[in-house]
Design a protein around this nucleic acid. Sequence first.
DNA 1: CTGTGTGCAAACTCTTTGCATAAGT
DNA 2: ACTTATGCAAAGAGTTTGCACACAG
Lengths: 144, 144
Amino acid sequence: MDSQPVHMPCPTRFAVDRLRSAGLRPTRQRIALAGLLFAKGDRHLTAEELHDEASGAGIPVSLATVYNTLHQFTDAGMLRVLAIESSKTYFDTNTSDHHHFFIEGDNEVMDIPMGSILVDGLPNVPEGMEIAHVDVVVRLRHKG
Amino acid sequence: MDSQPVHMPCPTRFAVDRLRSAGLRPTRQRIALAGLLFAKGDRHLTAEELHDEASGAGIPVSLATVYNTLHQFTDAGMLRVLAIESSKTYFDTNTSDHHHFFIEGDNEVMDIPMGSILVDGLPNVPEGMEIAHVDVVVRLRHKG
DNA sequence: CTGTGTGCAAACTCTTTGCATAAGT
DNA sequence: ACTTATGCAAAGAGTTTGCACACAG
């Protein structure tokens, strides 16, 4: 019956399709990184974290390529950059409009559940400007 | 009548007092930097900007000292650090609770007038955590 | 094949640090 | 005098870039 033999596992298929529709050539490294990024729900990663994860998964990819790839994905609208902490760039796999917890000390980023925060009374924007985005970061610390 | 001759201009006096009450020795450099920072209302500066400004004002101070001083002022509660853009640290002379515009392209930071923004419906905070701070950044772009 | 992507290493930016010198009290 | 701050230069983290080689179409 199966006249179209499938040689690749499903996550790879998924990644390949996503890359193609973004106009990016599905190379080994991009497929692998997309697989890691988009397989398990929303994630917030630095380039270094993703690089470590790839290495750990037996995918040899250079840090430079991880950076390049993350920026390509960002330009293609598959990722969003978070400016939460100076000195480290976090990439968010959830590109929809939402906000974040940042846990000081642990340097961990978490999504704030949609709809549970409300920003109101936005101020008048200066002449000739428009709002590109509103970012809310709720910084948490350990109690005690 | 004036039995206490005043040899220093007023801004210096002010800076010296501020430094003393923060427990910081009022050195030439600290006095000069405090003068620049706190003389003209609320400001949002990077270390490099302040360094340039000091140099321009004929105050020779090294960039390393500017960084050290900004951190000492921050620890003393005289400044706040803004994490608005990756790769650059902005120091805010307004330590009260308020939010910011960030103009993309120009990389300029502006205060949002107090009370003109309202964050409501803060989400439940995870167990054992408390809110340290809520930061709202309204990112603006030039229209057209 | 042809063009694009990758890896490596070097460059670059921002920031911190160590140590001898200078300044404050 | 005694202590603390400063300047310089070097080190350090994170990120980017240039160029030869490798891979996808």
